[in-house]
Design a protein around this nucleic acid. Structure first.
Lengths: 134, 134
DNA sequence: CATGACCCTGTATACGCTACAGGGTCATAC
DNA sequence: GTATGACCCTGTAGCGTATACAGGGTCATG
């Protein structure tokens, strides 16, 4: 096999992605289908590697696959206004902020519940009591 | 039909749960199978309602179904030490704390990225640039 | 030519539901 | 008595983001 082609394993190692995940991205339209070798192996080009890196970075930042699809489409149209990119990123940031707020409220409730526990028997357990209907 | 029996719809309305979700809890061993009417309707007892309320409260607090199964088992053994309950709740709190920490780090990164955007064209977009491999 | 690393497709699993198809039951109105 | 509509039943498929595995083919190396 030509040693200069990029196999799926190469892409996986270079981006820290599982092979199955790369195939999953292809099936879901995030990564274009590469050409195939005679033995039916996927043969990637450097562009595929760049695109996959982009996807992984965006995933690390918590963007959804839908958002990433949109970001990729935008980054392919380099003359367009970047307002749409900003909108996606800001929308995502707002989601993250909401999650933080919600989780902090949740943690406060858990703190209250757990701090009451005097660790006797279950019958007297404040945690169970808090969960039980009055 | 006997007007005093609790149908699945009653449980649903009284706990703010969808009917399908109640059946899902039953299939997944959180809610015991109730007896049936002649017409094969589920006929619940007040205990079922209490148990479902417990489940919903715990879900609202973010406990997983596995954790809730364990909490229910513990609350059925009222003489046991409540340390196990405390362990589950503390484990969950630690997970929530970790999520908050992770999301705050994420938000900081998003802030940095978005603040750089000068909203020109995509070719100059700092957001796309941040995501792209160098 | 045998071994083992790698690749292929297709399907099942995880979480916690939600939705739907295709049917049965029940209370109420006429 | 029957028509309507609200409610119930089972079983299956779908969401998002992968991960795992079965059962097989390909490739480089000894």
């Amino acid at each position: 096999m030509n040693s200069s082609i990029l196999t799926i394993g190469h892409l996986a190692r270079q981006t820290g992605t599982k092979v199955e995940t790369i195939r999953f991205y292809e099936k879901n339209g995030l990564l274009p289908e590469p050409s195939r070798t005679e033995g039916n192996y996927r043969a990637y080009e450097p562009d595929h590697l760049n695109r996959l890196s982009f996807i992984r970075r965006a995933r690390d930042l918590g963007f959804s696959l839908d958002q990433i699809r949109a970001l990729l489409a935008l980054s392919d149209n380099r003359g367009q206004s970047c307002a749409a990119v900003d909108a996606i990123a800001s929308e995502h940031r707002a989601e993250v902020e909401k999650k933080i707020t919600d989780l902090m409220a949740l943690k406060a409730e858990l703190d209250r519940m757990i701090d009451q526990c005097e660790c006797g028997v279950v019958a007297d357990c404040r945690i169970i009591e808090t969960l039980s209907p009055k």
